[in-house]
Design a protein around this nucleic acid. Structure first.
Lengths: 222, 222
DNA sequence: ATGAAAGCGCTAACAG
DNA sequence: CTGTTAGCGCTTTCAT
């Protein structure tokens, strides 16, 4: 915490006001005269005042910070999601504490513990898929906000996820609409993939029946 | 800051000790009797006590947190560096606040400001290369620890970087030692690439002269 | 419109 | 070995 140069008190002394007046003024309260607000803002600038969010957190009991845990960082879709998350949160004044569990469950637990002691307001996590979710459920029971970045069935934990079925369906439709008809799908034996496969087959099936109907419409058989 | 359930004071009441005794005990001070330490540890566990790092930071004046700013997150070498950084820092008890500047200088400035108000102990940054470095220099002048993740000449700011020359040299040597002799290099017109090119040519040159010498040694000419 | 005082949860002197 | 008192920087009643 590279020594804070100026505190509320310093600018209070410099301007002759009380610390609370300064606090209010800096936050733009109209309870303070415009003249005072201006004078105070000027002094703050001169002293290069940087508000101490730590102190503010202690009293407000919210850190305005969320924890983000990714179990791997090599996945570009995850990192780009992380970027979006950070940017969005930043625009609302939230900071993000970040950690990788590096495929290690113990590391995930330590990261969570560390985030909690840093009083994060909530946790965003892409957990190790094979790990038990008990630790997350426990957090939920303690009424601690947790949302997973991947949907896991019946976990009882909030999650945002990818609609694998719709994604595959739309992608397949797109190809079909571009005029392609021989469309294959490369799959791996995973749950998410199965969902994608269903989307793919559904799109193919609907295309076939559409083609069937149009054939009879366009070139009526004798 | 999802309401903290138990505070030092709570476990103090439950055990009958004073808060400072509890504080010391929890930190394993030998100034506290083993019996007391054990009793206190047990109570802390029962109350699911989570230390409030925020309060600790306020008094210790160090957040044990560093800020990490990357101007892009799509670059896998950057993200894997970020992972290493986070893991290393975590093992020393440090947290990392993360932000992307998203190629936007203003965003970089805002991120820095936010980190400062969150009292980060230092800043790790991969800045926008074309941006002026004045803001970082100013931080240095205020004696705020900053290190860049890319070396920029004469910036006066600490930096860790890649030894492009040595890397290319070693890679080329490696191929040579594996017996290859026709080694090409694909380059783009950038400063870093030029350094790599020099490493490559140096390795090639030394291999040629070595081959020259060995030819005369192994098959002396008549 | 502004000031005084209390307190957030914790650590750090001093006492005993 | 353990308790008491301050105080970190800020916000928040409650006065004035």
């Amino acid at each position: 915490m590279a020594k804070q140069k100026a505190r509320l008190k310093d600018i209070a002394q410099k301007t002759g006001y009380g610390t609370n007046t300064v606090s209010l003024a800096l936050r733009g309260s109209t309870r303070i005269s415009a003249a005072a607000r201006e004078k105070i803002a000027k002094a703050a600038l001169e002293l290069e005042y940087v508000p101490n969010h730590i102190a503010k957190s202690l009293v407000s009991r919210r850190s305005n910070t969320v924890g983000l845990i990714l179990h791997e960082i090599t996945n570009p879709i995850l990192t780009s999601a992380a970027e979006k998350i950070q940017l969005t949160l930043a625009s609302s004044g939230y900071g993000v504490l970040f950690a990788t569990s590096n495929g290690n469950f113990e590391a995930e637990l330590r990261a969570i513990e560390m985030f909690r002691s840093r009083m994060v307001d909530g946790l965003l996590i892409y957990p190790l898929l094979h790990a038990k979710l008990d630790h997350l459920k426990r957090l939920r029971q303690q009424n601690f906000p947790v949302v997973m970045l991947v949907g896991i069935e019946d976990s009882g934990i909030d999650a945002v996820g990818i609609d694998e079925y719709a994604g595959a369906y739309d992608a397949t439709r797109h190809l079909i609409e571009e005029g392609h008809s021989r469309i294959g799908a490369l799959m791996t034996p995973q749950y998410q993939t199965a969902l994608k496969y269903n989307g793919y087959t559904a799109a193919m099936a609907s295309a076939r029946s559409a083609a069937y109907r149009s054939r009879y419409a366009a070139t009526p058989s004798v």
